[in-house]
């Protein structure tokens, strides 16, 4: 374990070019996918939490079910759609960071939708009635509702980012873990472990946890500042 720590530290301070590339690809993939999932999922979650229509529960159950979708299934789905014989094969996206981002967006967007819906649903009627009773218009009410969601939006983002950075099934299937191109932290850990380089695998694992910790600290600080 101590050896892994030392190796991790040496890798970082040596500025190992492959490691830095892995870190950049990981950050690019996970930050992009979690932000896109947030942009899609937050309005959808709030919409589901505030509106009433027939079949709404079907959407909610679907979102909650998809929250538990195994990453390899998402990866397989993307692989079939974007492989040479698939309907989107011509786009030639397989084994690129773009397809990795798409796969992760599919994986984590239901998480964002379900989380926001769960938060908004019990307070939306109360907010609507209070705002309506004060004669506030729809736009103002909507702004107030969004304002109430700031805190859960941040925690949902952290959840989405954590799922993205920790998953390995989807990115390895559609990205192929190609060195210098689509290899991220999790796929690199798998590769090194398969090669028997356990120390390097553990070292990368530690860097992964440190990276996750840094993002958590940064988002939590922003959350506190905005909630103050």
């Amino acid at each position: 374990m101590l050896g892994a720590f030392i190796t991790a530290w040496e890798l970082i301070i040596s500025g190992d070019r492959e490691l830095i590339n892995i870190l950049i690809v990981t950050a690019k993939t996970c930050l992009t996918s979690s932000l896109i999932a947030l942009l899609i999922g937050v309005p959808l979650g709030i919409w589901l939490g505030t509106t009433r229509f027939k079949g709404k529960h079907v959407f909610i159950v679907l979102a909650r079910t998809l929250m538990g979708m195994p990453p390899v299934v998402a990866g397989l789905l993307m692989y079939m759609l974007f492989s040479g014989v698939g309907p989107f094969g011509k786009l030639k996206l397989l084994f690129t960071v773009t397809i990795m981002v798409i796969a992760q967006v599919i994986l984590i967007t239901p998480l964002v939708i379900a989380n926001l819906e769960t938060y908004v649903s019990p307070i939306s009627q109360q907010i609507y009635e209070t705002a309506f009773g004060l004669g506030l218009g729809r736009r103002r009410t909507f702004v107030l509702l969004y304002n109430e969601c700031v805190y859960p939006i941040f925690s949902t983002y952290l959840l989405a980012f954590s799922r993205a950075i920790a998953e390995v099934g989807a990115v390895s299937m559609v990205g192929g873990a190609i060195a210098w191109k689509t290899n991220v932290m999790t796929t690199a850990i798998m590769l090194y472990t398969n090669r028997g380089s356990f120390t390097l695998g553990i070292a990368l694992g530690m860097i992964l946890i440190a990276l996750s910790l840094l993002v958590n600290i940064a988002v939590t600080m922003m959350q506190r500042r905005l909630s103050a």
């Binding site: 209070t130 009773g133 107030l144 700031v150 909630s227």
Partner: peptide
């Protein structure tokens, strides 16, 4: 009409 519901929401 102005209305105060039973559970009037305290905004953050």
């Amino acid at each position: 009409i102005r209305y105060m519901p039973q559970k009037s929401y305290p905004f953050r």
